[in-house]
Design a protein around this nucleic acid. Sequence first.
DNA 1: TTAGGTAGTTTCATATAGGGAACCGGTTTC
DNA 2: GAAACCGGTTCCCTATATGAAACTACCTAA
Lengths: 120, 120
Amino acid sequence: MKKQPVVNNNQLCLVRIQGIKDAMEVLSGKWKFHILGTLMLGENLRFMDLLREVNGIGRKMLSKELQDLEMNHLITRTVLDTKPVTVEYSITEFGKALYPGINEIANWGIAYRNAIYKKE
Amino acid sequence: MKKQPVVNNNQLCLVRIQGIKDAMEVLSGKWKFHILGTLMLGENLRFMDLLREVNGIGRKMLSKELQDLEMNHLITRTVLDTKPVTVEYSITEFGKALYPGINEIANWGIAYRNAIYKKE
DNA sequence: TTAGGTAGTTTCATATAGGGAACCGGTTTC
DNA sequence: GAAACCGGTTCCCTATATGAAACTACCTAA
């Protein structure tokens, strides 16, 4: 008789796993946390602002990541009637709800680095 | 004169960004949150257990991801002197420290899914 | 002896991520 | 008029991620 999965077979676990899956789908890639983190610090940033603030990102990636985030309702994109045209990006309530999570992860990262550096 | 970055120029922000970077480096990929999430639910799982529990993963990916996680001190690998040999994986204190973060992310994912489904 | 268990690795693919550089069409400042 | 700004897009390339299937090697129970 074949063995069956045993741990994740109750409803709560399945929902939790699905939650992780959904979140990761929206937040996947090298830059999303960075961009959101930056938009949390300074709201209403423009494209070129973000290009400067998010260290290392190129315009193509930034453009793509912003489109993804907008499509997933984490940020909004507003074209302003200025000359030349400027575009403002800001974080939505959905995005803001990620703040505690991102913060936890950031703090973990800081603690992790300290611990590893002390050890090695 | 060229414009300079303005938002992330203080020490706190830089440390925070670095924390996110470090964390993401260790947690990158499609499966790490899943594997850690599973190891949080049932400690001391064996390779084949994980292969069954982590829905959709293949043996090659699992093998690679477990090696990564072990290298980064998030899990431990213990070979047991049984016949046939069995190998137990369990989460370390470092890994456990991620629990609140992963939990936050999972809850966000659940809320996100509910909200999006209601809307559309 | 056949099927299934243990824990992986190897090989051969494709898919996706990520990045540099040039380009577009416009505006503004020196 | 040249250089710099605005917000991107397009082309071309490499690197990494991911996956299916076969293989190793050995053990056990029916």
